[in-house]
Simulated assay, not measured.
Amino acid sequence: MSSEKFEDIEDDFRLSLDSLRKLVEDKIPKLSGEQRRSAARDAERQAEDCQHLLGDMDGELQHAPPSYRTQMGNKYRSYKRDFTRLRQSLKQLTSAAPGGAGGPAYSRPNEVNHLEHEQRSQLLQGTNALERASQSVARSNQISAETDQIGVEILGELDGQREQLLNARDRVIETDQEMSRSRKLIQGLARRVLTNKLIMIIIILLELAILGGVCYWKFH
């Protein structure tokens, strides 16, 4: 979330700004000669750090949620004012030699300045690459966790469906058994009906034979 990253950058900026303030307001004014020049170079490096972090905060501010943007914007402008004031103070300190004499307080060779700038750029690039890699790993872990959760849910659904299929199979078996018993019962009833019909036919035939015998005996 942009507000969380803004807070992380804000913490780093505060540390760099405090270091710059101590150099500009406390340390450099009390030094002279090579010590003053060395402290001034340290202050320049801190100022570059602050400048870079302000740029990062401005980038996060552009993508911040609307509910946080006003508060974050007020902080950003306040930090920028403090940094601008310290940067101007640093320029004033380095524009004159200690003790009030005119001329530059120090002179850094262009090659050293260029080398330090490249090293710092490489360090910042490495930091950004590491941060992007960390974010990528975090996203991968989140996707993996979501995939595991989906897999667990699918297994749960499959287990429930398996239970339903087993219950349906048991009901089919029970129904088949009931139908078998019903068929046997119907077959038994059919045999009884057939037996009763045969018995009735035999009885009728016997009665006809008796009736014929009686008639024959009576008329002869």
Rank of each mutant, 00 (worst) to 15 (best):
Q125N: 12
N141C: 07
G59H: 09
Q164N: 11
E163L: 11
K80Q: 14
S107Q: 15
R77N: 03
Q71G: 09
A133G: 06
A133F: 03
E60Q: 12
A97E: 07
L93H: 04
S78W: 02
R87C: 02
I154Y: 02
S136F: 13
L61D: 00
A64M: 03
F83A: 01
N74Y: 06
G59D: 15
E111A: 11
R81F: 13
A97G: 03
Q164S: 11
I143K: 09
D56Q: 14
A96Q: 04
N113M: 11
E157T: 09
S89L: 05
R132D: 09
T94D: 01
R77F: 04
S95T: 07
A138D: 07
Q125R: 13
R108Y: 05
A101R: 13
E111C: 08
E146L: 15
G156H: 09
M72E: 08
A96S: 08
Q62W: 14
A96K: 06
G156I: 02
A145N: 06
Q122A: 15
L130P: 00
G103E: 04
I154G: 01
Q161P: 00
Y79A: 06
T127L: 15
D58R: 09
R132S: 12
T84Q: 08
V152Q: 11
Q164H: 05
Q161I: 12
L54E: 02
R85W: 03
S67T: 09
N74L: 13
L61T: 01
L93S: 02
H63V: 12
E60Y: 06
E157L: 15
R139H: 05
A133M: 08
E116P: 00
G99L: 03
Q125Y: 07
G126E: 13
K80C: 04
E163Y: 08
Q135R: 13
P98C: 08
L90F: 03
L86E: 00
V112T: 09
Y79D: 03
T70Y: 12
R87S: 10
Y79H: 06
G156L: 06
Q125A: 15
N128E: 15
A138E: 10
Q122V: 14
Y76V: 01
E163P: 00
S95D: 12
G151I: 13
Y79T: 01
S121N: 13
L158D: 03
G73P: 00
I154W: 03
G160C: 06
L90A: 01
S89P: 01
A138H: 06
L115N: 07
F83R: 00
L86H: 00
M57D: 00
N141F: 07
Y76R: 02
Q92F: 07
R132M: 11
A145S: 12
Q161A: 10
M72R: 02
Q71S: 14
A145R: 14
G59M: 09
L115W: 07
N128D: 13
